[in-house]
Design a protein around this nucleic acid. Structure first.
Lengths: 116, 116
DNA sequence: CTAACGTATCAGTGGATAATGATATGACAG
DNA sequence: CTGTCATATCATTATCCACTGATACGTTAG
């Protein structure tokens, strides 16, 4: 992707990369389901597995992603590990997204770029 | 993906799908660059091509995605087509993301799920 | 009508990534 | 120390998605 040389004139490409990475982190229904489960209360991995119906390795993978991104935090408790939202701003972002969807969102379903 | 049967108990999966689709729409550096260009002023496709250094079909494709998602709107002017942000809430969402990045964002770079 | 320009669409290709099964690590019980 | 449970990591596979070049469509100029 060397075509971005002309982008140097815009707001730093690094910022765009970071923003894209954040949105991509949020751009998965299963990760959103995990965040949704954590919004109400702290959960162990098993509880998330139960709520989402996903495989355990899959959940651990997503949690690692969310943890590295700083969106959730973890706390060891015996042989359990309990996760929770790392920051209130995460919930704010999700809420604003819902507001946008409420305003213009019906169209998103029409987007043929994603085959669903 | 039949493993989501247990998800029916949570907030409707459809909502999660829509949110994911929105975030995925925003989860591409090039689309963010396009939105960035449009945030300052209305642009023709050619102008966006010039600013981003992307190929013209590529830009048209991304614009179609953003248009279908209701994030931008278009206006024909002779043989030009001028695009602009569809809603102020888009800018709000981008700004919220930057706030979150400012707070916890440095960690996102550590996320190994995306190979960059 | 014909040529030139701006934009959109299509088919093909390569790369990235989510899900899975097997397995490793770590903690507690007996 | 051995077995069991909770979680994390690894390798593989299948899928999805962004980019490219060719081309079609629509508009204006001559």
């Amino acid at each position: 992707m060397t075509a971005q040389n002309t982008q140097d004139d815009l707001s730093a490409p690094d910022t765009l990369e970071l923003r894209a990475k954040l949105f991509r982190g949020l751009g998965d229904p299963n990760r959103l389901a995990i965040l949704d489960a954590l919004e109400s209360n702290e959960c162990s991995v098993q509880e998330i597995v139960g709520r989402t119906g996903l495989g355990q390795p899959n959940v651990s993978n997503h949690l690692r992603c969310l943890l590295d991104c700083g969106l959730v935090s973890r706390r060891s408790e015996g042989r359990f590990v309990r996760y929770r939202l790392a920051d209130g701003r995460v919930a704010v972002l999700l809420r604003d997204a819902d507001r946008l969807l409420a305003a213009t969102g019906t169209g998103i379903d029409n987007c043929k770029r994603y085959t669903e």
